[in-house]
Design a protein around this nucleic acid. Structure first.
Length: 419
DNA sequence: TCTGGGGTCCTAGGACCC
DNA sequence: TCTGGGGTCCTAGGACCC
């Protein structure tokens, strides 16, 4: 059996932990630059604030209903996530951390355990130790555990937020209840297509012909169908090194000058290089993209990207920023108002045991320099040492007007209790 | 005025190899 | 009239996830 454990309204719940005054109050968390709504408490959902809603469009709604609005505080969410995952790992030796707020647990050899009780115990312990509410779905396959989790979440009173699918009747009943667009692995495109064929529930989907599913939804769709039928096709996945790493941002204002983009792209390349070094990889290719604001129909649009195949594998901030600028020069056109840029690195090889080329003319002194920079920044704070091409006066900043304290990761933000 | 960021996997088709 | 068979690698685009 598999369990899918999911934190309820995770970011909103994190904001509430150290603010008991926000209990039962609507909360939303905004994306970078305070742009869109990316998390909502149940109370905010009840106000019909949709996922992805632009914050400026909902400013009045926020005000009218006294919605508590927060800028995303990823340091806090990441730390709370680690705490929750560490508790869950006490319930099974086989855990897959699926996302910041979700984990699959595999229960093999648990035949003599009452899994409902295990779920209830997890829920109680996570709530007590972290303050985060969770929902637990348990079933014979990963896809069915996702379904069970939805039921647990949808009917918290009846299920105590823990639901187990352990019989054929329960499986059929659950699939009959679940709308096709809510099935894990069915996105907007497939949902639309299936509905046109009068497939409205997960159960309808499992009634389709294997060959049809294979043809129109590839092996991925077929795997999903079997999983929903109770045939195990997906196992826990090992954590593996990333295959691509990206740093991309929207700007608070529109940029027209090459110099502005140059600073941003350099900083993004440096950030990618740092992430690469952290997972001990080098990249062999790099992509840079820039584009204007697609929402501004009054301005001319420009959107381009270019991928450079690098002459050698590297994770040096200096080399990667040079390549990134070379790419930027290829795609930058003056006369446009740029809103967003990004750097993506891919085609990795291990940092150790690199294959040097015969005619390669590389400055290997970069390696100790990067090690020194990482050590200094680790000790004295991010970006204490940076390239001259990065913003020196820290002019650039993200719009983050409602950032909560880093209660658990910054000693200055730890709460004080006066007795 | 204002609209996020970061990933994975699969397929078809072209280019190329022997 | 008639033009093989089997394979790999790469890329762009599509679809999905959180």
């Amino acid at each position: 059996m598999f369990a899918l454990v999911d934190c309820n309204n995770f970011y909103a719940s994190c904001e509430r932990i150290f603010r008991p005054d926000l209990e039962n109050k609507p909360i939303v968390v905004l994306s970078n630059n305070d742009g869109c709504v990316i998390a909502r408490s149940n109370e905010a959902k009840a106000l019909n604030i949709p996922m992805g809603a632009p914050a400026f469009e909902y400013a009045k709604v926020f005000e009218r209903h006294d919605v508590k609005v927060f800028s995303a505080n990823f340091a806090l969410y990441g730390d709370m996530s680690n705490r929750v995952m560490s508790i869950l790992s006490g319930y099974s030796p086989d855990v897959e951390i699926y996302s910041i707020d979700e984990a699959f647990l595999k229960f093999s050899g648990f035949t003599h355990f009452n899994l409902t009780e295990q779920g209830l115990s997890m829920r109680k312990q996570v709530a007590q130790w972290t303050g985060i509410p969770i929902s637990v779905g348990i079933a014979p396959t990963k896809a069915l555990s996702k379904v069970a989790n939805r039921i647990a979440k949808k009917f918290p009173e009846r299920t105590e937020s823990v639901y187990v699918i352990d019989s054929e009747e329960k499986r059929i009943k659950a699939l009959k209840w679940l709308a096709i667009e809510d099935v894990w692995g069915i996105g907007r495109r497939h949902a639309k297509r299936l509905k046109a064929l009068h497939i409205h529930t997960a159960l309808d989907f499992t009634g389709l012909d294997d060959a049809w599913v294979r043809k129109h939804m590839s092996v991925v769709g077929l795997r999903l169908k079997h999983e929903l039928q109770g045939l195990c096709r997906l196992d826990l996945e090992e954590v593996q090194a990333k295959k691509s790493i990206a740093t991309t941002r929207s700007f608070e204002t529109l940029y027209t000058e090459f110099a502005d983009l140059k600073e941003r792209v350099t900083t993004f390349a440096v950030s990618c290089a740092e992430k690469l070094r952290k997972q001990k990889s080098c990249c062999n290719a790099l992509t840079v993209f820039i584009h204007t604001n697609p929402f501004r129909s009054d301005l001319p649009q420009h959107s381009r990207s270019v991928t450079l195949k690098l002459p050698f594998a590297t994770n040096s901030s200096i080399e990667l920023s040079q390549f990134a600028l070379q790419a930027l020069r290829q795609i930058f056109k003056s006369g446009y108002h740029y809103k967003k840029a990004g750097v993506i690195v891919h085609d990795f090889s291990p940092h150790e045991n690199q294959q040097l080329k015969l005619f390669e003319n590389r400055d290997l002194r970069h390696i100790p320099v990067m090690e020194a920079i990482d050590a200094i920044n680790q000790r004295f704070g991010q970006q204490k040492v940076r390239l001259a091409a990065q913003d020196q006066k820290r002019i650039w900043k993200m719009k983050q007007q409602r950032l909560s304290p880093c209660y658990t990761t910054n000693i200055r933000d730890v709460i004080t209790i006066n007795v």
